[in-house]
Nucleic acid binder design. Structure first.
Lengths: 347, 347
DNA sequence: CTGTTAGCGCCTTCAT
DNA sequence: ATGAAGGCGCTAACAG
């Protein structure tokens, strides 16, 4: 039964040295392979280590080496099914480089976000920052800290912070193109968080869509399944009276900020007895694999989550070891046409 | 443009002291509120801190204080939708106690698991260990390390490690009772990982189920949606020829290791045109909220994930500050009867 | 090849 | 109330 609040009497490198009859420096050398030491001594050291159950103290190592062997990742919401895959990949890369991964969650709260990043910087060699909503100025200030950092899922041009992201604009363009080709002429977009870069990138695609004959109306919504459900319920409340149509005149497609929103919208549409894709086409965004499980067979665009995590991790590692990597990276999205989109009114 | 591989010339507490015209000790005191210092000095210190952009070095603090202000969590699989909610809660508790949360993933690999726990112990004040499959002996060895640790989702009686878990046995008993009352007499159980404690706890419920007239056959399966799908496909392959029934004679219910498996099974059953719950009843386990999105309305038992994370975090904190907390905690599960279970053959 | 020495940055007695 | 000094455990020059 243990009963020591803080910590027990730890065995140090000096103890090991004493037990093995060598200096602490030699112990350090055999442990880290820093220099050749005679077989016999090395053996004695290893025995002593085993017998005493010695474990190097990470803080002391960190202090002496000026490194923590740790990278930090800040994500807005751990429960977002988008992140686990990314984190898995980041963690794998980190591990293969001999580093741990420290994860923090900002709960989408921009005020704590800043504080958390600072804390991460204090205890990690490098930081992977996924902060869609942080004001650019604040980001700039953080960047000025001159601490290794990689921006993730967000690109801020002249900010001298390496960044990696997904080509959201291209993804949404693909969706618009798909709908336009199916003959859709009017669509609504259930928008994500307003301040989010990811959201504005998607919206940016709509101007070119107009050129191809697809008119998009942006409707504030959110990022959750519930938000999608509610948005449709709302539209229904205000429109259904008109002439039985759920949406405004001529709207035959609903695009969404992400798959979750799409699922929620689909659920509500299904409850309303709306035929998808007969009357209304619905598209998602992200292709969270949940779809396999939901049987909804949502048409969407997929983001290569593990590739994203892998490359992000590698960029950070490169930053840590080789220095600054200038060019921002964009990963392409792929259109996944499935069962929730069909022909529009103009064949 | 930065270009320094490791780290820049950090500003230390001594620099601050020099700038403020006080000793480093005084700086430390105002920063930590360890002792009273004169207003004017404190003010000068704070100014210097701000101007120089001083940030305390976490490693040095850790070394000096013998604490890291960090807790470590090891989970088998980040992508398991079960964990994010738990982690959120743990993280919140940790933060409210002034600690960070370090997350690691073992990838269900028992060999790295051990290594990761050891690493966590080296750099965290305490460890939250979710390791369903680790052999008891190994666990005992880790426990003997005498490092603050709380077992999570697993209970090992005489191991002098505080543990918190969900009453899986009670949950499965509730499911069996539900099915039995509906008149089911024969069921199969699509089992999870063999070595897993969580799995054996579920299976333990079947012996009492027999007393209530429900005969359960355990079928090896797995923990994923895919595994559930495949298990049904397999059963179909070997049985369908007989007399059109998917399963063995008289089997009218399928219980599963978790919701994911159930989703997979449901998907396959749906493809086969089997009526659920008309012909076959299906039950899940865990109640991952994904269900809202999947429209499957799965009958299942729910685990209070955030409560679990919250209490686990608090147990660890208590262990860290007050010492050993003896009694293992079990959180109850709640039966959620939804649409995938119906009357059995014996009304 | 090995031991000695001097920090890494901070905290904390101990004097003052 | 403040400063000086030693130490946390480890690493990395520097001698030998």
């Amino acid at each position: 039964m243990q009963n020591r609040p803080a910590r027990s009497a730890r065995v140090t490198i000096t103890d090991v040295g004493a037990a093995a009859g060598v200096s602490p420096a030699t112990v350090s050398r055999v442990l880290n392979g820093t220099a050749r030491v005679e077989e016999s001594l090395a053996l004695r050291v290893q025995q002593a280590v085993a017998e005493l159950g010695y474990r190097p103290n990470a803080a002391a190592q960190g202090l002496a080496r000026g490194q923590w062997e740790t990278i930090g990742v800040l994500v807005p919401d751990l429960a977002n099914p988008y992140f686990p895959d990314v984190l898995k990949a980041v963690s794998a890369v980190a591990r293969s480089n001999g580093r741990r991964m420290l994860v923090m969650e900002s709960d989408e709260d921009p005020t704590v976000e800043h504080e958390l990043v600072e804390d991460l910087m204090r205890c990690c060699d490098g930081v992977l920052l996924c902060s869609p909503r942080m004001p650019r100025a604040e980001l700039a200030e953080l960047a000025a800290r001159d601490h290794p950092m990689v921006l993730f899922n967000r690109v801020e041009p002249g900010l001298s912070v390496p960044s990696i992201s997904v080509d959201f604009h291209g993804g949404m363009t693909a969706i618009c193109g798909h709908l336009a080709q199916l003959g859709h002429r009017r669509a609504i977009y259930l928008a994500g968080p307003e301040a989010s870069w990811a959201n504005s990138e998607r919206i940016r695609a709509f101007s070119s869509a107009r050129a191809f004959g697809l008119e998009v109306t942006v409707v504030p919504c959110g990022a959750t399944s519930q938000a999608g459900y509610d948005a449709v319920a709302l539209a229904e409340g205000s429109r259904l009276g008109d002439r039985g149509a759920v949406f405004d005149d001529g709207v035959t497609a609903v695009m969404t900020y992400n798959d979750l929103v799409a699922f929620g919208a689909l659920m509500r549409l299904r409850e309303l007895g709306v035929d998808v894709p007969g009357e209304i086409s619905v598209t998602g965004f992200d292709d969270i694999s949940l779809d396999r499980v939901a049987h909804s067979n949502l048409t969407t665009v997929s983001v290569p989550r593990d590739e994203l995590g892998r490359q992000a991790g590698e960029m950070l590692e490169q930053l840590l070891t080789k220095g600054y990597d200038a060019e921002p990276r964009y990963l392409p999205m792929e259109l996944r046409v499935r069962d929730t989109t069909g022909r529009g009114p103009v064949p």
